[in-house]
Nucleic acid binder design. Structure first.
Length: 478
DNA sequence: CTATGGCACGGATT
DNA sequence: AATCCGTGCCATAG
């Protein structure tokens, strides 16, 4: 990478290098930024990370302010104006935002089970190719009450006209989402996934994997002796494995208490579900302002080392040039990071204000919004918004983590309405009938479009749905 | 004949 | 300039 000369690094030297790097940084997620800074810190002596301060009242890490924005925020706050600030953290545990009271009464506490597909889908959305979404939706809506996928993969592949490997790929992503092993084709698979994840943080009994792979059926019926023979190990060992499995693994993912509480934080989840911003409701009060924390992946404050700057004067001639370059790099980085932060703060301020209903009440209340219109409002270039939004995720007050781009989904509110219609239908409705119903609710879309939305949500066509219903009825009886 | 998926086009969005 | 998304037309399955 080329480094242009910058003579004076004061407030507004909008050099090309400056601009370019600001843009580049804007695009990075918190996680990626973390890596970038780490790399820079270790290679550039001019940059230093000084210990951060903490808010004296709530112990929240701070960057510049004396009190954290929440503590210093007076009661005269209106619910329209969100509190937005940068929150420096080294590490972040999902679902551990500061609104302690999880008893927030959000929408349906009743229909927990109904939510599993959506819950999983939201987690994996950031990793999914756009074209894979219908497949994921299909898999998730086909889960049985144990969270297992009894539909043969090949059937799904045929339905979507994609190779079996694609479906397998999607299934794999799903399996590693929250109720670990969800979407597996059978308990055996689910166990193996869990074992795999567990093995990364804990030590597991040797041969446990083989025991499951080769002897799951035997294990089920407590035929320990048989397995011992098969694996050529003592029966005692087998019993050990069996108890380990019983204690730590769960062949029926959906029966685990997914959501809210998670004890084992797997490295995998952490990597993927660390949000870039956390949105919560002050005191969990419906009318309170929203609190938006933008995660800055370092605790402490990043700055140019003043000692280094001093030392530059007495630099040995041989090193002078190198040191100057280091100094410039450091200053540039700090400045660009500030700009990145500033840009995101402004973006979130507007975004959260306009999408308050969506954040609080769910998908149906999403305000169709374009990046272009926001760009106009903020008086920045559209590409700036695009970069700021791309590849980042937000955690909502409900604990769900969604990609930031969802705020700009043009059709989500219609799709949710469509889901509602399907959920309430007494008999399978044809696409054309759905068009009419949507029109009655104020959404004008073409018949063809309804079909597409259906596919996106993994809802099967009317004539197939009728069969499913029938199957469900019979299944319920048996 | 009806319901639905595929392909492709054009305008909007990024 | 590249991509995404809604739609119309046509083929096909039931």
């Amino acid at each position: 990478m080329l480094i242009r000369q910058i003579q004076s690094v004061d407030v507004r030297p909008t050099t090309t290098a400056h601009l370019a790097q600001t843009m580049a940084l804007l695009e990075l997620s918190a996680l990626e930024l973390h890596e970038k800074i780490e790399a820079e810190l270790s290679s550039n002596p001019a940059l230093e990370l000084i210990e951060g301060r903490f808010c004296p009242t709530c112990q929240r890490p701070l960057i510049d302010t004396i009190l954290c924005p929440i503590c210093s925020h007076p009661k005269n706050s209106s619910k329209e104006e969100p509190i937005v600030f940068i929150s420096p953290r080294e590490e972040f545990t999902p679902y551990a935002s500061f609104d302690e009271d999880q008893g927030l009464s959000f929408e349906e506490t009743s229909a927990e089970f109904e939510d599993l597909p959506i819950y999983v889908l939201r987690q994996i959305a950031p990793e999914l190719e756009e074209t894979d979404r219908p497949i994921a939706a299909h898999i998730l809506t086909s889960l049985d009450k144990d969270g297992l996928l009894r539909t043969p993969l090949i059937e799904i592949a045929l339905y979507h006209h994609v190779p079996l490997s694609r479906v397998e790929k999607v299934q794999k992503i799903i399996q590693y989402a929250d109720p670990l092993g969800v979407g597996s084709s059978d308990p055996k698979q689910a166990l193996l996934v869990q074992l795999d994840v567990l093995s990364q943080t804990h030590s597991i009994p040797p041969l446990a994997q083989r025991a499951i792979e080769e002897g799951w059926e035997l294990l089920l019926h407590n035929l320990h002796a048989e397995i011992a023979k098969k694996l050529a190990i003592p029966v005692a060992k087998v019993k050990e494995i069996a108890t380990f499995i019983g204690k730590n693994l769960n062949p029926y993912p959906a029966r685990a208490n997914w959501g809210e509480v998670h004890q084992p934080t797997t490295p995998y989840r952490e990597a993927y579900y660390t949000p870039d911003v956390i949105i919560s409701l002050l005191n969990g009060d419906e009318n309170a302002p929203l609190v938006v924390e933008i995660i800055f992946p370092m605790s402490g404050k990043l700055r140019v080392n003043p000692l280094f700057r001093e030392g530059l004067r007495e630099a040995p001639p041989a090193k002078l040039e190198q040191w100057q370059r280091d100094l410039e790099r450091a200053t540039l980085l700090v400045k660009c990071i500030q700009q990145r932060n500033h840009a995101i703060v402004r973006l979130m301020q507007i975004l959260v204000k306009q999408q308050r209903d969506f954040i609080l009440k769910g998908d149906a209340y999403l305000n169709p919004l374009t990046r272009a219109s926001l760009a106009q409002e903020l008086e920045v270039h559209e590409s700036t918004i695009s970069r700021a939004v791309s590849g980042k995720t937000a955690q909502l007050p409900s604990g769900k983590i969604i990609p930031l781009s969802k705020f700009f989904d043009r059709s989500l509110h219609i799709r949710t309405e469509l889901q509602a219609i399907i959920a309430n239908e007494s008999q399978p409705l044809t696409d054309l009938e759905i068009v009419e119903l949507l029109k009655a609710r104020g959404f004008r879309v073409a018949r063809r479009t309804v079909a597409k939305y259906r596919a996106m949500e993994g809802i099967l066509p009317a004539h197939i749905r009728s069969k499913i219903k029938y199957q469900k009825m019979t299944a319920a009886i048996s």
